[in-house]
Design a protein around this nucleic acid. Sequence first.
DNA 1: CGCGTTTTTGACCAGCATCAAAACAGGTGG
DNA 2: CCACCTGTTTTGATGCTGGTCAAAAACGCG
Lengths: 243, 243
Amino acid sequence: MTALDLQIATEACRQCPIRHRAVCATCEPDELTRLEAMKSYRTWMAGQTIVMEGEPMPFAASVVTGCATLTRSMEDGRMQMVGLLLPSDFIGRPGRANAPYEVVAATDVTLCMFDRPAFERLLTDTPHVSQRLLEMSLDEIDAAREWMLLLGRKTAREKVATLLAIVLRRAATGSAPLRAELPLTREAMASYLGLTIETVSRQMTALKKDGVIRMSGLRGLLCDDLGALLAEAGDDADGDVLS
Amino acid sequence: MTALDLQIATEACRQCPIRHRAVCATCEPDELTRLEAMKSYRTWMAGQTIVMEGEPMPFAASVVTGCATLTRSMEDGRMQMVGLLLPSDFIGRPGRANAPYEVVAATDVTLCMFDRPAFERLLTDTPHVSQRLLEMSLDEIDAAREWMLLLGRKTAREKVATLLAIVLRRAATGSAPLRAELPLTREAMASYLGLTIETVSRQMTALKKDGVIRMSGLRGLLCDDLGALLAEAGDDADGDVLS
DNA sequence: CGCGTTTTTGACCAGCATCAAAACAGGTGG
DNA sequence: CCACCTGTTTTGATGCTGGTCAAAAACGCG
């Protein structure tokens, strides 16, 4: 997506790359018009904090491009990622003014932001939107529960394999060898998986040595046999969710 | 609540003990009438399976009394609890016919069950209900994320202390010594916390030895100093969520 | 009272964290 | 283009937390 495309998208929802998957997916033309009036695009660079834990959050937003993370932290500094937001995912909780977690740009991220009061009015006025948001929330609950199984019961090797499989699934470019850019640093991976950086690194090395994955550079991920990777992940070969 | 009360509640939503907290909380009188037509009560005994993982789930329901658990399991038998349902909590996912997790009665449980197709029609017809369900789902997401922090980053001792604090909060009978009946077996606690039974048992013993809690029998929990317990839990003294 | 189940306790071990240092990548300025 | 510096990633050595296996104790129930 070029800067020009982005500009167009800013103006017309109909051109938007996440039009049919985001919270606005089921909007009618007149509802889109109303959305267009209250939305604005904004971009953050990788690593930048979008919202700090506990701070006021005067907007709701959809991720248009890039990847953001939600992180919850303890007083002594221990942190756990609790959400991974990819294009079309929704940020913000109607009815709540303050963010319960830190929101950080994992890669460069563009958000389509809605003024919170206006968005909440839209929610009460248009069942379309609130029903779509309900649907997305229910998916998110399922994803969170899958994630809880990972955090509570999987071994380090299974955790890493699971995450790599998730990334490959989302980036699915068709046939083998499957190829994807890791949108996460080792630190973000560790935060996602409830591990330390060192353990993530060791397990990646082990999976490479065992021929389950290959790397091209630090971020380029290759997999010839997704079945083998899924076996390492301890899942049966179906329905993972992300976000 | 006696058997007689329950009988009354079956007939009239207005008498229902969870009337203002459940998914029907915001219903108008006419909507309640519609609900009454499609609902039916059913009770399970502690330990019974309500729905098996992957099986069809032809209903949605609210927990009226008792406690149920949602559990996700891996092929090799490892299990992780992913939901703890207390009175007023909602079971079921509109738009999905099969249960993605096992539902088990932790204590004796009574559900107020709705026929799924009828309930889904109600959802599309009455924004009240779907907005209430959205609200509840968003709370559930927050609870799941808090739970993820526990699973990913807390020590065994912190995990156990956190769970005990959650139970005490929900059962809050006013002033010290705080008192509650544990609705969970050691096995269920372990499943909730991503630990083994033995570790849960050891940590409970340790917390007793350290004077943080006292037990009267296996299920009776006493705490003289909730602040001390919360300190052990690694939380600051506020907003935990459950379910 | 006796049996089955749940819980506790004990001994031991493995997996992951921790601490530390080396290797590597990426960017800057000479 | 290379030397240098900074931050990330990898590798190594070691220790602790929590898992595993086993048995004893406590509880619940017929």
